[in-house]
Simulated assay, not measured.
Amino acid sequence: MAEPVLEAVGLSRVFAGPPEVHALRDASLSVKGGEMVAVVGASGSGKSTLLNILGLLDKPTSGVLRLGGRDVTTLTERERTRARARAIGFVFQAFHLVPHLDCVRNVMLPLVHQGVPRDVRGHRAEAALGRVGLAHRLTARPGTLSGGEQQRVAVARAIVHDPTLLLCDEPTGNLDSENTATVLELLRELATPGRAVVVITHDQQVRDAADRWVEVRDGRCGSHQSA
């Protein structure tokens, strides 16, 4: 059985006031390699706070977070940055592609920041674009791509360093139903024994495509199996 890629136990996050805001309350979540899990909840429920903590962009006030079995709760800012760059890929609703760079150079960017040699960066970027079905658009710039193609480039950029955790924040929010289905199929394929995929979403289609879904309500998590 696949080991948990991500384990959150009793997370809380309190923002100082006045008034004091309890964004997360004793939230727990475990995601194994090979799983695609959707996180749903109303605005203000705490799901964005949860995403920031899972992505090592913020620290919990209390609780424990483990990534690949390692307790990352008490890491320094520098250590969190390194762990995030090594183990986590991010995909957002807005594609955040650099308009003047072609697809290959957009996908290379995480590797540039990691100091990977230029020739290796190119090979890995091309391989990642091939993985998302865009081997024929290597030199295209974002402005010439459809919304679905742009999101696939963003996914390629998120996986180019082979992360163990892929965090997606409303990845289909700017896509029509056809492109949504294409991106969801891709995300499911990327949920391999060595990688977990977590998707924050309001979209029923996304929720139904996941192995299970977690509802965040009043800062707490409850898990449900998808139909």
Rank of each mutant, 00 (worst) to 15 (best):
P4T: 07
V5K: 08
V9F: 11
G10Y: 01
G10Q: 02
R13M: 14
V14H: 15
G17S: 08
P18A: 09
P19Q: 12
V21P: 00
A23P: 11
R25A: 12
D26N: 02
S28Q: 05
S30A: 10
S30Y: 10
V31Y: 02
V31E: 00
K32W: 06
V37H: 04
G41N: 02
S43W: 04
S45Y: 09
G46K: 12
G46F: 11
K47L: 11
K47M: 11
S48V: 02
S48L: 10
S48E: 05
L50V: 10
L51D: 09
L51W: 11
P60C: 07
T61E: 10
V64C: 02
V64I: 13
R66L: 15
G68V: 07
G69H: 10
G69L: 06
R70C: 01
T74A: 15
E77L: 08
E79R: 05
R80W: 12
T81E: 07
A85C: 09
R86G: 05
F90D: 02
F92N: 00
F92G: 00
Q93N: 05
F95Y: 02
F95T: 01
H96Q: 12
H96V: 00
L97D: 03
V98M: 10
P99G: 05
P99C: 06
D102V: 04
V104H: 02
V107T: 10
V107S: 00
L109D: 06
P110R: 12
V112W: 08
H113W: 14
Q114N: 10
Q114H: 13
P117F: 12
V120S: 04
R121G: 04
H123G: 05
H123F: 04
A125R: 06
L129H: 01
G130F: 08
R131C: 13
V132K: 03
G133V: 08
L134F: 09
A135W: 03
R137F: 09
L138V: 15
T139S: 14
T139C: 09
G143Y: 05
T144Y: 01
T144P: 00
G148C: 04
Q150Y: 10
Q150V: 05
Q151D: 05
A154W: 06
A154Q: 02
A158G: 03
A158P: 03
I159C: 05
T164S: 12
L166N: 07
D169R: 04
D169M: 11
P171H: 01
N174G: 04
L175P: 01
D176R: 00
S177M: 07
E178S: 15
N179S: 13
N179V: 03
T182W: 04
R188V: 13
A191S: 11
T192W: 13
P193C: 05
G194W: 01
V197G: 00
V198L: 11
I200R: 02
T201M: 12
T201W: 03
H202W: 06
D203C: 15
D203Y: 00
Q204S: 13
R207D: 07
A209N: 08
D211Q: 09
V216I: 15
D218A: 14
D218V: 07
G219I: 10
C221S: 08
C221Q: 04
G222H: 14
G222L: 14
S223I: 14
S223L: 10
S226E: 14
